[in-house]
Amino acid sequence: MALVLLQELGDVQPCPPAFWTLLADVARLLWLESDVVWYEWRRSEASAGAFLAELSLHDGGRARKAIAGLWVEGRVALEPGRCARVRLVPLTPEYWGHLVPGDVVTMHETRVAAGSARIVQVVPPVPMAS
């Protein structure tokens, strides 16, 4: 229960990467592996910033240049032709800094576009606590 309350605190206000690392460590001690993965994801968001977006997959394949980690909210996988809210953590931040809510990015896994995502929110990196 304490982890849930602390996570909710992190959802309300930006928390530094160390906060999420501590939650991941506690979850690891409690054998809550899915929570460990989520808290480590949130640590990445706090470190690099993130983009919340609505992603629609095309009925086809999925190349990367402006590379980002992808987390599909509320699902294990997103099937072709479906839409879902996603979280993107830029792995090449220099290609992402210009994006604002309303912008659309195209998803590739090959030369053919696999989907497109409309940016809903930009989450800046959280400064390291001193």
Score class of each variant (00 low, 15 high):
51 F>V: 03
78 L>I: 04
8 E>H: 10
89 V>H: 02
14 P>V: 08
53 A>I: 10
15 C>H: 06
15 C>A: 15
7 Q>T: 09
121 Q>P: 04
123 V>T: 06
95 Y>W: 10
81 G>A: 11
74 G>K: 14
36 V>G: 05
81 G>P: 07
45 E>L: 07
67 I>R: 15
35 D>E: 07
49 G>Y: 06
116 S>V: 03
94 E>F: 01
9 L>S: 07
65 K>I: 09
46 A>W: 02
81 G>W: 03
102 G>D: 05
36 V>A: 02
79 E>K: 14
74 G>A: 04
32 L>G: 06
60 G>P: 03
25 D>M: 10
79 E>R: 14
36 V>D: 03
113 A>N: 07
28 R>F: 03
24 A>I: 09
25 D>K: 15
16 P>K: 09
70 L>K: 13
93 P>K: 01
9 L>D: 15
73 E>W: 12
75 R>D: 07
73 E>N: 08
33 E>I: 05
30 L>S: 14
98 H>Y: 08
32 L>D: 04
93 P>M: 09
64 R>F: 13
92 T>Y: 02
38 W>I: 02
102 G>R: 04
52 L>N: 03
26 V>R: 14
46 A>Q: 03
64 R>K: 12
78 L>V: 08
110 T>K: 13
103 D>M: 01
20 W>H: 12
59 D>K: 09
63 A>K: 15
34 S>N: 14
69 G>D: 15
92 T>S: 12
108 H>M: 08
65 K>V: 11
98 H>V: 01
101 P>Y: 00
27 A>P: 14
99 L>D: 02
40 E>S: 06
120 V>I: 10
90 P>D: 04
103 D>F: 02
66 A>L: 07
94 E>T: 10
14 P>Y: 12
5 L>F: 07
93 P>E: 00
18 A>I: 15
53 A>W: 07
83 C>A: 10
107 M>Q: 06
20 W>C: 02
65 K>W: 14
67 I>P: 04
61 G>Q: 13
120 V>W: 00
13 Q>P: 08
37 V>A: 08
120 V>M: 02
33 E>A: 14
54 E>L: 13
100 V>M: 05
